[in-house]
């Protein structure tokens, strides 16, 4: 069973373990709202960066910034909305195995086709 970060403000339902397989605590709705606000702000900043690139930003700098923001959004959803931060570690390992395998296979494929 996964443990919950002992933040009393954000884990009001720590006792709501509904036996969901390695039952876990559900954070409060307010924490979800905070994550959603962060996602919205990051999306707005992504779009801003896109338009700002028209004014002479280098492609490499733009791509690095976009990838970083994409990764933060990705992990915010996975950790909080999909509960992986609070859930059994096996779920995290299974999912990340798929992510890393996919990235490895297709990076290799793109390299083989001299994409870079």
């Amino acid at each position: 069973m996964a443990t919950v970060t002992p933040d009393p403000q954000d884990t009001a339902h720590a006792s709501d373990e509904h036996a969901s397989g390695g039952g876990h605590a559900h954070p409060t709705d307010w924490l979800y709202v905070k994550v959603a606000i962060a996602l919205a702000v990051l999306t707005a900043f992504e779009v801003f960066t896109y338009f700002e690139s028209l004014h002479g930003w280098g492609d490499t700098a733009l791509i690095i910034m976009l990838v970083l923001m994409m990764l933060v959004k990705f992990f915010l959803v996975v950790a909080f909305f999909m509960h992986l931060k609070f859930d059994a570690p096996i779920f995290w390992r299974l999912f990340m195995f798929g992510v890393v395998l996919a990235m490895a296979v297709y990076m290799l494929m793109l390299t083989a086709f001299r994409f870079w």
């Binding site: 397989g21 299974l94 798929g98 395998l101 996919a102 296979v105």
Partner: peptide, 20 residues
Amino acid sequence: ISNEKLAMWVFLGSECLLFG
């Protein structure tokens, strides 16, 4: 751990390969 939930996570892991 719940079989159904485990199955969903395995499925989502495999979906990464499809979308990748």
